[in-house]
Simulated scan of single mutants.
Amino acid sequence: MGEGFNFDDSIEGIWDKLGEWMDSLILSLPNFLLAILVFSLFVLGAKYFGKILHKVLRFKVRQDSIREITIKIIKVVIVAIGFFVALGLLNLDKVLTSVLAGAGVVGLAIGLALQGTLNNTFSGILLSFLPEIQIGDWIENNGYAGRVIEINLRSIVIREADNNYVVIPNSQVIDAPFKNFSRTSRSRVMVNCGVAYNSDLEMVKRITIQTVSELYPQKGNEEVEFMYNEFGDSSINFVVRFWTEVTSNRDILLARSAAIIAMKKVYDQNNINIPFPIRTLEFNNSLNIQKPISGENEL
């Protein structure tokens, strides 16, 4: 029959094991502190290198989104290098090799689980290098309109006219059409109006084109266009189209407002009526209160 359990020997074995771990920790402490110091230096280096790179790229690259995404990627790469160097100082090369060997399987699993996130990430990289959309542009996308404040690896942030922020996933911006008001310095503005049926249509056209042309001088091949488009219920309707310098939806509204004010003034000076719908109620059958109702005397 074997010997019974010896409690003292077990305690002694535990203490021996703890002593070995303590000796190993003491021996590894300098490398551990050095690894922390090296990793911290890489993190600080990435931060300051990003600032220097931002100053350099500011004169080399005009597009803000390209500068920001480039700086973010380089900072992540520097921090990752520092992490691997720190693992090497801790003599964890074998562990690192095992981690990298299993990274393929883990990466596949993560990729399947985070398809939407990865899609937004790659879309963010594409948006950062897309010249048709930049930080500071006024765009319309997915039913929202505002100025682009930030383009990151997950979403695009726009500030609407009411000063509220809207965060749109990058994949939705890439997959859906968007309208950029800031890519062209001049755009065409349209004003719809109508005049009374008894108006001199030729005179209305002439003074409208003259008024708008004086307010917004046209350049090159540009011209003020005036076209009647329908016989309305109470007016003959037309549209005026002219070119002016606009880079946002607000600029379009201001240009349209100024044109409407100028057109109304010149119409008033020339006795041109802009009619509005009028409803007339006619009562052809009048009620005679003196005439007795049939059957009233039979009661």
Rank of each mutant, 00 (worst) to 15 (best):
L96G: 03
I110D: 02
G82D: 07
P30K: 06
L29D: 05
E3H: 15
K75A: 11
A262P: 00
R154V: 11
K265L: 08
N31T: 02
I11T: 07
G102A: 14
A196T: 13
A35D: 10
L41W: 04
L118Q: 04
E230A: 09
I252Q: 06
N271F: 11
V195I: 10
N141R: 08
E150I: 05
S248P: 03
I278P: 00
V189C: 08
N273I: 13
G104K: 06
A113F: 12
M203N: 13
F32H: 02
T208V: 07
A46N: 12
V105A: 14
H54W: 09
D233P: 02
I278V: 14
N270G: 09
G82T: 02
Y216D: 05
I158S: 03
E202G: 02
V61S: 11
P30W: 07
L299S: 05
G102K: 08
K291M: 13
K94V: 14
I252D: 02
V85H: 01
G194H: 02
I139D: 02
S182F: 00
D200F: 01
I149D: 04
S40A: 15
S213K: 09
I174C: 09
I149A: 03
F5P: 04
E214H: 09
G146M: 01
S185W: 01
T244A: 01
S10V: 14
P177M: 01
G146I: 02
I74D: 00
S248M: 06
L87K: 00
F42I: 06
I272F: 10
